[in-house]
Amino acid sequence: MKIILTHDVPNLGTPGEIVEVKDGYGRNYLLPQGLAIGWTKGAEKQVVAIKRARQAREVRDLGHANEIKAKLEGLKVTLTARAGTGGRLFGSITPTEVAEAVKLAGGPALDKRRLELPGHIKTLGGYQVAIKLHPDVTAKFNLNVVGSK
């Protein structure tokens, strides 16, 4: 099945790419989730225009991504969560909570979907979180999870 990606799909491609996938994967996951659209000649012409616009934007975004990376790496992010005895959290830390904590710490607004948490954060302590700002730029910052009093 030939499809056009509308979102970044790990291990498959970036928006605007035309890829060949198995019928079930495309029909049951990519299309219903809105991650892709079916391929047609008309849609392929639109993709060419989208790619040209994205390439012009990426060159401008590379410098901006490096600026954001420098800001994030110098930032001290602290997140307060409810914890029980032994430092175990009630629930776990989500990417949405991390993005809000970065914003509260004076950092830029981040896309929660681009955050890469080091597994499930279920205990108090320090963690290193990565975010893919650009295909060539990945920033890492320290997250400190503390218990609420």
Rank of each mutant, 00 (worst) to 15 (best):
H7F: 03
L79W: 10
T80L: 11
Q55P: 08
A101Y: 06
H7P: 00
L62Y: 14
L75K: 09
T138F: 10
G84C: 07
L143H: 05
V48I: 13
L115S: 03
K41H: 09
N144W: 02
T123Q: 14
R54L: 15
A53I: 04
I50W: 14
E58M: 02
A53M: 10
V146G: 01
K122P: 04
Q33Y: 13
Y127G: 04
D23L: 09
D111N: 15
K122L: 06
Y25L: 02
D136V: 03
Q55N: 06
L30T: 01
I37C: 05
L31M: 12
D8S: 12
L35D: 05
I121M: 01
L143D: 08
P10L: 15
L143P: 04
T40P: 02
A83V: 08
V98S: 03
R52H: 06
G119I: 10
V59Q: 15
W39C: 10
I18M: 11
V146A: 11
L104I: 08
F90C: 05
R57F: 13
T6I: 09
G13Y: 04
V21S: 03
R82C: 07
T78A: 12
T80P: 03
I3E: 05
I93D: 05
L79H: 06
K132Q: 14
R27T: 00
K76G: 07
K41P: 00
L110K: 08
G126P: 04
V21H: 01
I68L: 15
A36I: 03
G147P: 00
I131N: 01
I68W: 10
F141N: 01
N11T: 02
K103V: 06
G87A: 01
K45G: 09
L72W: 15
L104K: 15
N66M: 11
G125E: 09
K69F: 07
P32G: 01
D136H: 08
F90T: 13
G38N: 10
I3G: 00
D23M: 11
L124N: 05
A83D: 11
D136E: 15
T96R: 11
D136Q: 15
L143K: 01
T94V: 06
